[in-house]
Design a protein around this nucleic acid. Sequence first.
DNA 1: ATATGAATTGTTTTT
DNA 2: CAATTCATAT
Length: 695
Amino acid sequence: MTGDAKVYPQRTREVAAAPTGPLADGLNEAQLRAVLHGDGPLLIVAGAGTGKTRTLVHRVAHLLERGVRPERILLLTFTRRAAQEMLARAERLVGSASRGVHGGTFHATAHRLLRRFGTSAGLAADFSIMDQGDAVDLMQLARSAAGIAEAKGEKKRFPKKETLHYIYSRHINTERPVPQILSEEYPQFVEYEAQIMRVFADYTVRKAQRNLVDYDDLLLFWALMAESEGPLAERLAAMYDHVLVDEYQDTNHLQSRILRAMCRTTANLTVVGDDAQSIYAFRGATIRNILDFPHHFPGTTVVTLEENYRSVQPILDVTNRLISRSEERYTKDLFTKREGGDRPWLVTAHDEQAQTRFVVDRILDLHEEGMPLSEMAVLFRAGYMSADLEIELTARKIPFEKWGGLKFLEAAHVKDVLAFLRILENPRDEVSWYRLLLLLPGIGEATARGAITKMAELAWTSDAFGRYLPPPRARAAHESLVQLLDQLRAAPSDRKDAVSADIARVRRLYDDILRERYDRVEPRLADLDQLQNIAAGYPDRGSFLSALALEPPSATQDIGFGSDSEDDVLVLSTAHSAKGREWDAVFVIWAADGWFPMARALGSDEEIDEERRLMYVAMTRARDYLAVTYPFNVYDSRRSADYTIDQVSRFLDRGVRDLMQKVVVDQPQAPVDPAPHVASTLDLRAILNQRFGGL
DNA sequence: ATATGAATTGTTTTT
DNA sequence: CAATTCATAT
């Protein structure tokens, strides 16, 4: 590739992907060393755009050609999408021989293993998986059951359910004791240590009683099984001859324990990662994993990939300097043979609207020059920051797709419907019962609790709810729910669209409830239609629910049905969701201090470093064109009626800025005539007030 | 005990 | 800005 103008064939994505051909073809010396590495631990330190995925794919292909059976290879990736993409590319190299390679996320793999071996480790076979929201709900039940004496007048400082869950999750994922987490991160809660521990104990008991497994359990149970003594652990360790892990910098301590246990006999572990792109510390990930890898696995071969195939040199100059401000890292200085290219732009916009206008105008310019929309992306720190842009794009009829925003599985109405399916699958699912009962007219907290207690007494048999006697005002609702559940249980489950049909039945009852409870009814109903479509792709309720918990379809477009009318779409994405992707042109917006880095992520040096790496990830997504923008005046709704003057992000310090071209965008066209001042005695408010007697 | 309406509040990132 | 929490009426 050169810096010359590109020719865009219909489907650029394929062209941008790896050149295929004979195995060794098109690989540089370092990549080849990694691919051909024999047995034993291998650490590939791969900078952004250095062909990390390609190397991993080729290595899988190489192992297969060496005669390793596909089902004895485990490929762990960060997202399911990444796994699929790699396996597809491997297939292009070696054909169908690659089918059968096990691939997926840590969580999905844990799930598979637990379904298969969990019963030998004392786990009930039909457990359900809780997503984060469910876990928080359950934590709330434990929290209120603990009867924390929250003196009314006093500032009740006991942590909220979300915080409790977060602390619990950190404890599992980072393996630090709870008291330590409290004293280091939540000193204000140290005094509640005893109660917090009690809530956690109760939470754990509830999970067991209700046959529920949360995300953290998936990893924890896998680790415990694999590390145990005896035949089960041996079986697990003998399952795979080779384990390969992508994005290793984003794994946590628990995950590294799992890997050590799974590879204890062969030590055939390959990990790929870039410490400079570690952006998941909030989830317990630690760059110690990648920095200490050679120590954990004696005899490790380290291969460093430094040649960048993605970006033009001026972009690399900027990103190299940006990341050089980080402290501890494997030093890599990325270089490229790609010539030409413009220096990245640093755009100071007068305000948010000017920023939006600049981005949209540039996108249209580039598009007119022949760049497809699908080769451009706009990146930002947090989902809500694209709101203004989305409005403008819609107005100008530019098709776009948003990643990592609102997930419709988290929408209340979708969770409501799923609650029905869940109690069918797992009648003991207290969280879902509770949610569902509260939906019914005439049933509130107290009644719901009573019903659940009664059902527990009746040992959760399928007719337990029918035998519960509701108070008179809830009669009708109880009756119709009993009927619905009977119908659902009686429905044939072997039909192809059984799950979808279940949802349709649920909606005969639920749609009316929805209309009552929520506004913006139409889009919500559309979501439910969408849910039915997704469900049609699954053979049965159980697999549908598990899949949903582990791989939520990220955008509605993700779902594959109907709405892919547009082929050439612009991508809007959070920096997190953009990881691992690349585009010809990238816009990083809201690069103002307090927004990127976010104000609330500035607590410690570690957090600031992580924010810097996040910006590094965002900027290194660009191949040919990069623009970083920030608005100067921002209307801050929190302080009423005042503008704040924003500073450019602290990461774009003097040295970094020197490598960029500075552009200032004012208000090029005056926006809609700002209220022509006409003297008038008309007072609209007063007129309206008089109408109602002038209160 | 529930339902409804008002106030408030706090707002990342994801498996 | 929406979702949660809080207070009040039924």
